[in-house]
Simulated scan of single mutants.
Amino acid sequence: MNINLPNFNVKNLVKEAGSTLSRVVQLTEEKLGTTERTEYDNEFQNLAERADITKTWTEKIVRDTETVLIPNPQNRIEDFIFEKIEKTKPQRLSNLEHLALGMIEAGGDFGQDLPYGQALIKVGQAEQKLGQCERDFIASSGICFTQPLRKFLEGEMKTITKERGILETKRLDLDACKNRVKKARSMLGQQAKDGVSPEAVLEQAERDLRVAQAEFDRQSEITKVLLEGISTSQASHLRHLHAFVETQVRYYKHCMDAMNNLQRDLAKLRPAKPRLRINSEDVDGPPNTVLLSNIHATLNSNETHEVNEFSDNDDLNNFHTVDINKHNNVNINEHQQNTNGTFQNQNNTTNPFATTQILEQYDIEFDTSAITSV
């Protein structure tokens, strides 16, 4: 059986292994502080630090934004996997949509003709609109904000990181060549070793140093250009941020419109509920309006109190006053001013039984001591 092995260039393999070994030795000596290293200029260091900061914060912004858009971490992991295998993400219902379906089904079971059933259906439909608004917001935010930032991280920033790694390798090669040149110069005047004179060793080390210096300078320029491009990237990130804010504004506006419409619809479905005003304080009355004739039949007091009856529809035209001390449709004057400038009742006799009766007619437990005569 014939096995076709790939053709290896042994010379290049040995050369690469020697370069790797020299880099490891150089890096180890730098860590131990036994050798010098080539430092980057201040401008390059500032650009590199800015790139690191940009990368760190952009990753955090993307991660936090996705957390806001998709709070469930399991769903985020699932979406990430589907993106990697290039398949369509599953269509899942949001929490609002689950709530909407539950309310609509419950309203149907309770009865669409009943007030509670109608209200549940209305609220469920509004929650469905909110869920759709949320779905559109998530999709729009991904297109205009998170996807461009992630593309920057996976494209431009990854390229910068790769080129910086190559530059660091070139720097290690350069420093290793510098050390070999120093070592070769220190061996001048000594006897030849393995048939190679110290002069020849020095000449080869200087030649390698020139090549390493040229490669380092070239890689340094390439990396510097990429680092300077981060300013342009941040300008585009600013535009993406504005687009994200506009998308968020539209989302909350649509949600507000949906809730306002829901509030108006529920107000139309709300049954009229009378209220009592006792001593300028509103209290809820019974579901059905008490006939004024029944009220007058139970009141025997000469004390005058005013009871205002109106519905929650805030219809001022229906607002009227009921005199709880009327008897046989005869009105009694309520107040008159005395000679001292104060207001007193015409008849100071008070019938607490009448007040108790009106409260009982409205099924209200009320402290009668809080009702004062005017």
Rank of each mutant, 00 (worst) to 15 (best):
N2R: 01
N7D: 15
L13M: 11
K15C: 14
G18A: 15
S19K: 12
Q26A: 05
E29Q: 12
R37K: 01
N42H: 02
N46M: 05
L47C: 02
A51S: 13
K55C: 10
T56E: 15
W57E: 13
T58S: 11
E59W: 09
T67N: 14
V68T: 14
V68Q: 13
I70G: 14
Q74H: 03
F82K: 07
Q91I: 11
H98K: 12
G107E: 03
D113Q: 10
A126P: 11
F137Y: 15
F137W: 14
G142D: 10
Q147S: 02
P148M: 04
E154Y: 00
G155T: 09
I160A: 10
R164G: 12
G165H: 12
C177L: 00
A184N: 03
S186Q: 10
S197M: 03
P198R: 04
E199T: 12
E199L: 08
L202A: 09
D208N: 09
D208Y: 07
R210A: 09
Q213I: 08
Q213E: 11
D217S: 11
Q219C: 01
Q234R: 12
A235C: 13
S236W: 00
H237R: 04
A243F: 02
V249E: 14
A272R: 14
N279L: 07
T289Y: 08
L292Y: 05
L292Q: 01
A297P: 00
T298P: 00
N300I: 01
V307E: 02
V307D: 03
E309R: 01
N317W: 00
H320M: 04
I324M: 03
N338E: 02
G341F: 08
T349Y: 08
T350V: 14
T356V: 09
E360R: 13
F366E: 00
D367M: 05
I371M: 15
I371Q: 14
T372I: 15
